[in-house]
Design a protein around this nucleic acid. Structure first.
Lengths: 222, 222
DNA sequence: CGAGTTCGCGAACGGTGTTCCCGAAGTCTA
DNA sequence: TAGACTTCGGGAACACCGTTCGCGAACTCG
């Protein structure tokens, strides 16, 4: 009856009367997470998730208004697992710590960075993370827009790092092959030099990431 | 016959013998760009692009090995339109200028940021931009990995800004509605304050963006 | 002119998100 | 307890998707 154009977080989960629902929103979210962890984002189809639950695909629409809702639920569910250590007073260090918390979750769920980058969505758990960041920035001057920027960029940068670190796909191989070709052509000596540098091993990914994050953030909020 | 697992940039466009092809890779790319500019990324289906060209969908596979190739072609085609002003010697300023060049293209093609964020692909035109950035960083110390990081982060950050600036979709409305609800609940006073700040107008998006970009980059390369 | 090769593309396959609809299963009221 | 009411489960169907197959047409080369 009602024309619900609200975010899923504001829609009541179940009706008070009538036949009670067998499953719940969290159960469906968990099933979607399991499917995604096993087969990636593409595997998260209504049919697959339904099969994971042992039901029919059409039943899911009793809990969720479409696939987009499902993805929103997944993103916010992971936000619940972000570790938010007690602030130390060192602003940049504390922000980097949040970044590491985000990165931990993204490392646990390979499909998450892509989702975070393309559909920034805020559910209850995401709001908790945002609130934490706002708390860190509380006694700084600057309007809210700048603080929201910090949050958005922190998310995006960490997701970008997470994607680049797991650069194992056919996509990255193509880029490597093509860059090798460009280097061999001799027309871009700087790129040839770049590939040389990439061949020698370096420190751990975590060290590189936290160092870059600290430099970025100190520029942004310093 | 041959098992081409090379990036499209290394595959020959047309055969030397046999019936000559009616269309060319650039023509197909242009058609895909037109479809995307008109209807967004979801509209870029093999059938739609073929219709734009007045052909059948199956014909496209003579020019492109699949939809992914088509998207790669689109991204690199836009990279050709990135304005790369002459370096001035001010490193941060020159990098910001590259960022503004990237942003210009992303503003012209609403679907581009999403593509750039989720499938970083390097074709001939993308390599030119990368080479330009490497040139700016040439007389800096630091291994190639760090310079590649600068390039990747510049792309990602600008794309993030571009996505946030055009926050008109249903998605952003949902987030706003939910944040309003959270603020009204009184449990997150900082978020209420944030929304208050967001209500008052501020400087132009361009000023905010270039300023933030300059701070970010000066932290990263300074 | 014939052999060889590529091109265009209709048809078909398996998969997708989503909607319709109806029988089943509950709750609430009398 | 009987019946009205409401929601739930999910099979079937629709429109669309990316991709493959296969064949007649079109062209180049010897």
């Amino acid at each position: 009856m009602a024309d619900y154009d609200e975010p899923i977080w504001l829609r009541p989960e179940r009706a008070a009367t009538g036949r009670p629902a067998v499953r719940s929103r969290p159960e469906i979210t968990a099933a979607a997470l399991a499917v995604a962890d096993r087969g990636g984002l593409d595997a998260v189809s209504m049919r697959n998730v339904a099969e994971e639950l042992g039901t029919g695909a059409a039943s899911l629409y009793r809990y969720v208004s479409g696939r987009d809702d499902l993805l929103d639920l997944m993103v916010d569910a992971t936000a619940a697992g972000v570790e938010l250590p007690q602030p130390t007073g060192d602003l940049v260090g504390d922000l980097v710590a949040v970044g590491e918390g985000l990165h931990g979750v993204m490392a646990r769920h390979e499909w998450l960075p892509e989702l975070v980058l393309t559909r920034p969505s805020l559910g209850p758990n995401g709001v908790a993370v945002l609130d934490h960041v706002l708390g860190l920035l509380a006694d700084r001057p600057g309007d809210g827009r700048a603080k929201l920027e910090v949050y958005a960029l922190l998310n995006a940068v960490v997701a970008t790092f997470a994607m680049n670190e797991r650069a194992a796909g056919i996509r990255a191989q193509h880029a490597a092959v093509y860059l090798g070709h460009v280097a061999a052509s001799g027309e871009h000596p700087r790129i040839a030099e770049l590939l040389g540098d990439l061949a020698v091993p370096t420190g751990s990914a975590e060290e590189r990431r936290t160092a870059a994050l600290a430099r970025l953030l100190s520029g942004l909020v310093g």
